[in-house]
Structures are given as C-alpha cells and as structure tokens.
Computed example of a mutant assay.
Amino acid sequence: MTTVTKFSRRSFGAMMLASTAACARPPAIPPLPEVQPFLEGYGPIQDAGYNLPGIPTEYLQGVNRRMSGIYNGEAGPNTLDVDPYAKFLYHVRRDGTTTRYPVGVGRAGRSIRGSATMKLMREWPGWTPTQNMLRTEPEVYGPFRAGIPGGLRSPLGARALYLYRGSRDTFYRIHGTNDLESIGNSGSAGCIRMFNQDVIHLYNQIEAPMKVLIRSREESLRVDPENYGRGIELPAKIISPEELLGPEAEALDRPPEFDDA
C-alpha cells in the first residue's frame, strides 16, 4: 500500500525557501583595505590643523631614520652637529647622548660650512627664494619669487631653524620638507632638510640660541668613515604638495592653526 503525503500550499512554500537558503552561497565579504605600515615615529600626525602623511618605509631603509645613542663626534654638548658628507644631523645633549637624524644637504659647493648659531625657531614658516637662488636657477625658483606663506605649500615644511653668524642671517635653514627622496642625498640649494616628523621631533627637544657645527670633510672622515659619501646628488626641485597629500590638498590654502598660547 502506497502512502501519499499531502502538502498544503503554505508548507510546500516553506520547504522551497528552506531548500533555496541551504544552497545559496554566503555573500562575499570585501577585503579590508591594506593598512600602510609605518616605522615608530614616522606615522601620520596632526599638527596645526593639518594631517601630515606618514613616511613610507621605502624612504627609511638602513640608517636613513632617527636613532638615539651615545655621541662619538667632536662637537660640544648642547650643539647641533651636521655631517653633510654622511647626511646626518646630531642633537648632542649635555649628558653625552644624541639623537641622529638623516638629512638632505646642498649640492656640491652649496652647503654652509663651519659654525653658526641657531637663533630663531619657527612653526610652519613662510619661504622666499634668495636672490642667489633666483639668479642661478630661475627655472626652479622664478615662479616663487613673491614667496610662499607658511603652511602646506611652504618648502620649509612644518618647522624651520634659522642660522646666524653674529647678527647676520646666513639665509641657511634647518627645515622640514615634502621632498622625501632628498633625505640622505644632496639636492637642495644649500639648506639642511629633514623629514617633517623628524624636524618636529627635534624642534620639541631644543631651545634657541644653540650652536650649530657643520663638519668638514676631514672631520667626517675621522668620525664616521663608514657613512662618508652616503647618498647621491639630485637636481633641484620643489615638490608640489598636491602630489603628496591627496585629499589633504584641500587644506593647502588654509593657514596653520596655532594655539592661543
């Protein structure tokens, strides 16, 4: 005897839905966007209302990053010791320790030499090319002869330290930059460039006035022969912030937002 099972329209519909659900594949979950890893101290930071991007690790290979240790150079305490041949700046503390920062320096024959005094410190400084810059490389600096106010467009970056000899401004600066490739190389018109993250870090550790020593070739060879001649010489250029900052470029024309203090 054959038993025939009867289904109501409602029960049959429920079975069909269950069967369909069992066979359907779960919806695909889109992959999470890849997070750019940054070395400690070189990630994105907020400063004066700006979002500064992190430094990609490709620019921080080997010795081309901030390091701290015992100072073994020839400068006195409470000094900034710049080695234009090894492309480093040392903040020499009173206790004999130091933080070493990678820098970009001037091309051959364009770097400051000897000693100077850092007398002024500025956050988000404006920049105007010198008459010598305009005369020797008008194709690079001519469009900026009127100057650039402080902010994301300024080639001096997030901070600048102004070097003097006596009461005379040397027009050389230690400053931040958006030209990441220049750090560890020779490529500026003579100033000493740092990653913005590094120049902010240094700025927060020091006070003016402060002695600055620029090592001679002989001193560099004595103290750091291993890194002597590090880097290559690059042509002069000014990096457009739009190329680097992406969405943050909307804030290019907004002045920095300083605390009331």
Score class of each variant (00 low, 15 high):
61 Q>E: 12
44 P>W: 00
125 P>H: 01
18 A>I: 13
76 G>P: 04
181 E>T: 08
68 S>F: 01
163 L>Y: 02
251 A>K: 15
206 I>F: 11
23 C>Y: 11
109 G>L: 12
115 S>E: 15
247 P>D: 12
58 E>F: 01
68 S>L: 02
84 P>R: 01
88 F>L: 12
5 T>F: 13
115 S>D: 15
172 Y>V: 03
101 Y>D: 00
61 Q>F: 00
145 R>W: 05
13 G>C: 09
105 V>F: 08
160 A>E: 05
96 G>N: 05
39 L>T: 00
33 P>A: 11
206 I>T: 07
229 G>V: 09
180 L>P: 02
186 S>M: 10
63 V>R: 12
104 G>N: 04
109 G>W: 08
28 A>T: 14
186 S>L: 07
79 T>R: 03
240 S>N: 14
177 T>A: 08
201 H>A: 13
138 P>W: 10
129 P>V: 02
109 G>R: 06
149 P>S: 09
152 L>P: 05
145 R>G: 06
9 R>K: 12
83 D>H: 03
149 P>Q: 11
48 A>T: 05
48 A>V: 02
32 L>P: 12
210 M>C: 02
79 T>M: 09
168 R>D: 14
8 S>R: 11
129 P>R: 03
136 T>D: 15
155 P>K: 02
205 Q>D: 15
43 G>C: 01
195 F>E: 00
69 G>Y: 01
146 A>E: 15
172 Y>W: 07
140 V>N: 08
256 P>S: 05
110 R>V: 04
126 G>N: 06
252 L>F: 11
12 F>H: 14
14 A>S: 11
232 I>S: 15
2 T>N: 13
225 P>E: 10
34 E>K: 14
166 G>P: 09
187 G>Y: 03
44 P>T: 00
82 V>I: 15
98 T>F: 07
231 G>I: 01
17 L>F: 13
125 P>D: 07
102 P>Q: 06
157 G>A: 11
